[in-house]
Design a protein around this nucleic acid. Structure first.
Length: 619
DNA sequence: ATAGTCACG
DNA sequence: ACGTACGTGACTATA
């Protein structure tokens, strides 16, 4: 379909457009909007043009060129002021593909986007989390139309601003038209699934501006501190490298798994049975292998140390300062709301959800995350949220009661497993490993390795766990049966994760009564997809946790409106804020309360919050 | 582009 | 007998 937008280049046509848009107030027929810019990074993005699509019977399209390098255009400031009441007016319903991006672009221009009633990307994500949700995929899937690709439109080294107004008008017109046409289809599909519609309307859609705000704020980084850290690591790595060459009797690339494999298992003749074959035929040199090889040759320790330090240096110490913006002195991550299969967020460029914490040394990276001068950084995290959710969903009486009595559940598990009242720290540690392990469907082999016990002991531990917590066992099995019989499982808020079993026998069970499925007999058949079934048992737990923290973030965003305090980061069960000194005393109980009461479960949710001069010390 | 590895919850 | 704990993103080497 070829539809060419009207290109707005005169004041008269702009005011005509405003009149038409002023009439578009039907929330069931929102106007589709899209911005064309020069960069995927909103803060670097110059506005090149704005497109919109609306209509009652006839579909109408407009493109307003603003930043093309050539051609007649209206003044940006004039156009934005004219559009402001529409763009900022909640009474003018809008639909966008990935509204967070356009919101950030417009925000840089001083416009606060309001009235977004649908985001096609988020609607698609809620309906079908395990697919892609970019506009061209949606276009193909829902409309059977293949979209013109950005790459084909914009030559290498150029931006959209270099192109003719007519070409961009065509491209932008197609995008807003696609967005507009997707709207009724996605709305209708959501209407078929009331739980998903509710999830979309009350969680995903309102979360989007919260994430936009977090990204806009960014987090301050102490680049001097990282610079010193980098130099220190550089010195240490050079020494390690020299020593490793000396011990190996030759030089080699410490960063090459292939060369390491050859060195360890061929040249030095170390025990191949302590490793595993990898896909490319070599032997794995991963951390667990190296651990087993420790003591067999002195070079092993140096390889381990090199791995740790070079990972730290390249991924964090050197990478983070590169991403600090010169204008804000902060890093602005991208929170992706539509990538994970379970409903979690993800973070990229940089990923601020995997900043080291597990060892005292690597944790030092967190000291580089600092608040505005004179402020505090605050971390508030949910205590054992997934285990609490498991207790709630399984209704396991022993666990539910324990949490309600504010007991130490890892210690309780240890007492039940060891069948005694006084347990050691080591025994509690095993209780903790197994409590977390069941959430993922851990087997005896893994538990044996983690807990440092033998296989048979591990097996009997796991068996006893399920004897002590029979409802947990029942629940996890029930989720697997539902995945097979329904083809999906659900979270607390109705979020779905779908499963497609390829084995005929499993597929034949789709549509059957989950309670009639005998998992034990299925286990013995070939093609039994154990990994998918573990994912099915895990998804409601991981996904419900995501539901809960998303609700908390939305409510907190409202609460914080009267304060200077800002929400900066989300790390799955933790929120990080920066807080001016005079606000923390008042806000601490408020923040904790909002997080703890995000949903009411059969067990209490508990939040631990603390503040410090940086992220390392806010713990 | 893909594989291997490793950082987090 | 084997291999398996779920979910992510980034970096380096190598093709």
């Amino acid at each position: 379909m070829e539809i060419t937008p009207q290109v707005i280049t005169t004041a008269a046509s702009l005011y005509e457009l405003l009149d038409l848009l002023g009439e578009q107030t039907d929330p069931n027929n929102p106007v589709a909007w899209d911005t064309e810019t020069t960069s995927l990074t909103p803060r670097d993005a110059d506005l090149v043009g704005i497109g919109c699509c609306w209509g009652a019977g006839l579909t109408e399209l407009a493109y307003i060129p603003l930043g093309h390098k050539s051609g007649t255009q209206l003044d940006v400031a004039t156009v934005l002021e004219a559009l402001r009441p529409i763009l900022e007016g909640a009474e003018f319903p809008k639909v966008l593909q990935n509204a967070k991006y356009d919101r950030l672009v417009l925000r840089s221009q001083g416009i606060n986007l309001a009235g977004v009633v649908l985001d096609t990307m988020l609607a698609s994500y809620v309906l079908n989390p395990d697919t892609n949700h970019n506009l061209s995929d949606l276009s193909l899937r829902y409309l059977n139309v293949s979209a013109q690709s950005y790459k084909d439109l914009v030559p290498k080294g150029k931006t959209i601003a270099d192109l003719d107004i007519a070409a961009v008008a065509e491209y932008c017109g197609a995008d807003v038209h696609t967005t507009y046409r997707l709207t009724p289809l996605l709305k209708a599909e959501l209407a078929e699934y009331p739980d998903l519609e509710q999830l979309f309307t009350t969680v995903e859609l309102p979360l989007e501006p919260v994430l936009a705000e977090m990204e806009y704020q960014g987090v301050r980084i102490d680049t001097d501190y990282l610079g010193n850290f980098s130099q220190q690591l550089e010195t240490d790595l050079a020494k390690i490298e020299a020593k490793a060459y000396e011990l190996a009797g030759e030089t080699f690339n410490l960063g090459s798994p292939k060369q390491l494999s050859t060195l360890l298992f061929e040249k030095l003749g170390l025990d191949k049975r302590k490793s595993r074959k990898n896909k490319s035929g070599g032997y794995s040199t991963d951390a667990s292998t190296l651990e087993k090889l420790q003591g067999d040759h002195p070079v092993v320790d140096l390889i381990v140390e090199n791995r740790t330090l070079s990972k730290l240096k390249s991924t964090y110490v050197d990478a983070l300062p590169e991403l600090v913006r010169l204008d804000t002195h902060r890093v602005h991550t991208d929170f992706n709301q539509a990538v994970t299969a379970t409903g979690r967020l993800s973070s990229s460029n940089p990923n601020l959800q995997n900043i080291p914490i597990r060892t005292a040394f690597s944790r030092q990276i967190r000291a580089a995350f600092i608040p505005e001068s004179g402020w505090k950084l605050v971390a508030a995290d949910y205590s054992q949220i997934e285990l609490r959710i498991l207790a709630h969903l399984s209704e396991e009486p022993v666990l539910v009661q324990a949490y309600n009595n504010r007991e130490d559940v890892h210690a309780l598990t240890a007492r039940l497993l060891f069948e005694k009242d006084d347990i050691s720290t080591e025994e509690r540690r095993l209780g903790k490993i197994i409590n977390f392990g069941v959430i993922y469907g851990m087997g005896a082999a893994r538990f044996a390795r983690e807990a440092n016990v033998d296989r048979t002991e591990a097996k009997s531990f796991i068996d006893r766990y399920y004897e002590r917590y029979p409802a947990v066992f029942e629940y996890l099995q029930q989720m697997q049966r539902e995945a097979i019989a329904q083809g999906y499982v659900q979270t607390l808020m109705g979020r779905r994760r779908y499963f497609n079993f390829t084995t005929t026998k499993l597929r034949d069970l789709l549509g059957s009564d989950p309670n009639q499925i005998d998992l034990d007999s299925l286990k013995r058949m070939s093609g039994y997809d154990a990994a998918s079934l573990r994912a099915a048992a895990n998804a409601p737990i991981q996904g419900s946790s995501a539901d809960i923290i998303k609700v908390a973030m939305i409510r907190l965003h409202e609460v914080l409106k009267g304060y200077q305090t800002r929400l900066l980061l989300q790390v799955h069960d933790e929120l990080v804020f920066e807080v001016p000194p005079d606000e923390w005393t008042e806000l601490e109980p408020k923040i904790t309360e909002v997080m703890e009461s995000a949903v009411a479960l059969k067990v209490p949710l508990v939040v631990d919050a603390s503040s410090g001069p940086n992220w390392m010390e806010a713990k």
